[in-house]
Design a protein around this nucleic acid. Structure first.
Length: 162
DNA sequence: CCAACGATCGACT
DNA sequence: GTCGATCGTTGGG
């Protein structure tokens, strides 16, 4: 379970860390998934082994980060949609250029943590972006995924409340 | 080569 | 709450 886990980065020597509060799953036989039409240049790391970081550019401008969850060649990942600051909130404010709404969206979360395309394909266990297991306190609710037009019937968005 | 499409964000009413 | 900007990636000709 990724909800309640933490993502820690140290970009430009600045440690920042968030606790995950919102994620979305994307499967291999899933029309809404980037992996649905096979391996492309931009999505190749989504087909790597579980524990790999998959970073893609969204709407030409934002970065979004996923945790690869499937075995090599499968193309399954979980999109990190939102979190709350745990470490380095001051760095997040500088990177975001504002004091609020630091990581309450997939693009914002990447900007706050300093995650970009250079981190695509790196290991979440040994790379510059680390995933630290943690416990979720509170309840988890399940909803349709956001911002997609296909396979909207799949309740693969998970949100931590309270 | 060219056109269309987003797993979004921020400004605005 | 609504709406437009924005540009890399993809797929077709």
């Amino acid at each position: 379970m990724l909800l309640g886990a933490r993502v820690r980065t140290e970009v430009d020597g600045n440690p920042t860390e968030v606790m995950l509060t919102e994620v979305e799953a994307y499967g291999s036989d899933d029309e809404a998934s980037h992996s649905f039409r096979g391996v492309k240049r931009a999505n190749r790391s989504m087909f790597m082994a579980a524990g790999t970081l998959y970073v893609y550019r969204s709407y030409g401008v934002h970065w979004c980060a996923n945790v690869v969850t499937g075995p090599e060649g499968r193309g399954e990942a979980v999109l990190l949609r939102a979190g709350v600051p745990v470490v380095g909130e001051a760095f997040m404010r500088i990177r975001r250029g504002r004091v609020d709404h630091l990581c309450d969206g997939p693009g914002k979360l990447c900007q706050a943590l300093g995650i970009s395309g250079v981190h695509d394909g790196t290991s979440l266990a040994t790379g510059p972006v680390r995933l630290i297991p943690g416990q979720a306190s509170g309840r988890v609710i399940t909803t349709p995924r956001v911002g997609i037009t296909k396979a909207t019937d799949r309740l693969w968005r998970f949100v931590l409340v309270q």
